[in-house]
């Protein structure tokens, strides 16, 4: 361990702002793109279902139409 105490660790020899800003923004941005990718996956798969259900409805409506005739 290079630091005497935890508060020394946070202080980073006076460079606290720059070090924590760097590490913080880095992991934040990485988190954002990871989360966005998963959210997109969810919404895409849901969109597939919505489209599927829509097609099923149209098919059903057509069948009923031809039966009615």
């Amino acid at each position: 361990m290079q630091f005497e105490s935890f508060s020394d660790f946070i202080n980073m020899g006076g460079y606290a702002f720059y070090v924590w800003l760097s590490f913080g923004v880095t992991f934040l941005v990485m988190g954002i793109i990871a989360i966005q990718s998963y959210l997109k996956q969810s919404s895409l798969l849901k969109a597939v279902i919505v489209e599927q259900e829509r097609k099923a409805r149209i098919k059903k409506a057509r069948k009923e139409n031809t039966h009615a005739q």
Partner: peptide
């Protein structure tokens, strides 16, 4: 890597602890 770099790696002779940014940069 991050814990090692932040807490256990030595600081730089000239740049002190700000050198730890290298582990991301």
């Amino acid at each position: 890597g991050t814990v090692w770099g932040l807490a256990f790696a030595p600081q730089d002779y000239q740049q002190g602890d700000s050198f730890r940014i290298i582990y991301i940069h």
